[in-house]
Structures are given as structure tokens and as C-alpha cells.
């Protein structure tokens, strides 16, 4: 399982979704470019923390009786449902503020996609 590569991919995906949503509302100015570029650091940090704390433990804690197929089938649906519930709650309480919407939507899609990356890297490593 290649966790560092997954975090890197997740940071990229999160960065694209976050700024795509922001710039769908706000006009992009070239002067903003350095700040946009620097946002890679906090976004990467968030991805590192959340992926390591909420997704990786499922793969790290697996024992002989539970292969990655079982982990995916058993935990991913409930993880997705809980994540959706938390994100919906966040969206409602944020009054649809554009930064909150961008943060929550990018977190939702990035975390779900991270599961597939981690699962596939785990599979490939095993193969």
C-alpha cells in the first residue's frame, strides 16, 4: 500500500476541486496565483491528517482473515454514508458559504477516491 503516493494524488485532486469551485464563483486574477499555489501546503496537510487517521487504519489493522476485498465491502459503504452525513451537516450549517462548500465537496470526493487508490495500490503490491 503506497500511502504517500495516495496522499500526493489526493492533494492534487482536492486542490483542483477546491479551486474549481472557488473560481466558478469568484473571478480569477493573476495576482492570486502565488496564494493559490501556496494553498497546496494546507490542502496537503489536511489530506495527510484525514487519510492517515480515517482511511489508512482500516488497511493497517487488517489481519490474515480480512483481505482488502473484505475491508472494502465491509467498511467502505458505511464510511461513505457517515462522510456524506457529516458533509451534509457541514453544508447546512455553513449557510452555503462558497469557501465552506468548496472545502466540504473537495473533502468528500477526495476521501472517497482515496479509498480506491489505497485499495488498488494494496492489490497491486500483493500481486
Amino acid at each position: 500500500m503506497n500511502t504517500s503516493l495516495t496522499i500526493l494524488k489526493a492533494t492534487g485532486l482536492s486542490f483542483i476541486i477546491f479551486w474549481a469551485i472557488i473560481f466558478s464563483e469568484e473571478k480569477f486574477m493573476l495576482d492570486m496565483f502565488p496564494y493559490v499555489f501556496l494553498s497546496f501546503i494546507p490542502i496537503g496537510f489536511c489530506c495527510l491528517i484525514v487519510i492517515c487517521l480515517t482511511i489508512c487504519p482500516f488497511f493497517w489493522a487488517k489481519n490474515e482473515s480480512k483481505d482488502s476485498d473484505t475491508i472494502l465491502k465491509t467498511y467502505f459503504p458505511f464510511y461513505a454514508i457517515i462522510l456524506f452525513t457529516l458533509c451534509s451537516y457541514g453544508l447546512i450549517t455553513s449557510n452555503l458559504n462558497i469557501f465552506s462548500v468548496a472545502f466540504i465537496i473537495s473533502a468528500f470526493f477526495t476521501l472517497l477516491k482515496s479509498w480506491t487508490w489505497l485499495a488498488k495500490s494494496h492489490k497491486n503490491k500483493k500481486a
Binding site: 482488502s68 476485498d69 472494502l72 465491502k73 467502505f76 459503504p77 461513505a80 454514508i81 456524506f84 472517497l112 477516491k113 479509498w115 480506491t116 485499495a119 488498488k120 492489490k123 497491486n124 500481486a127
Partner: peptide, 21 residues
């Protein structure tokens, strides 16, 4: 919520196996 991601795993419902795409 996550139908597309579930299918992205390539879980074959008949064989209950995860296939790498």
C-alpha cells in the same frame, strides 16, 4: 452517494472479487 466509486473498485458482484482495472 458512492455507486461510481464502488464500481471503480471493480467489485464483481457475481464472484465477489475485487478486480484491478
Amino acid at each position: 452517494i458512492a455507486g461510481l466509486f464502488h464500481r471503480n473498485f471493480g467489485v464483481n458482484e457475481n464472484e465477489q472479487k475485487v478486480e484491478s482495472k
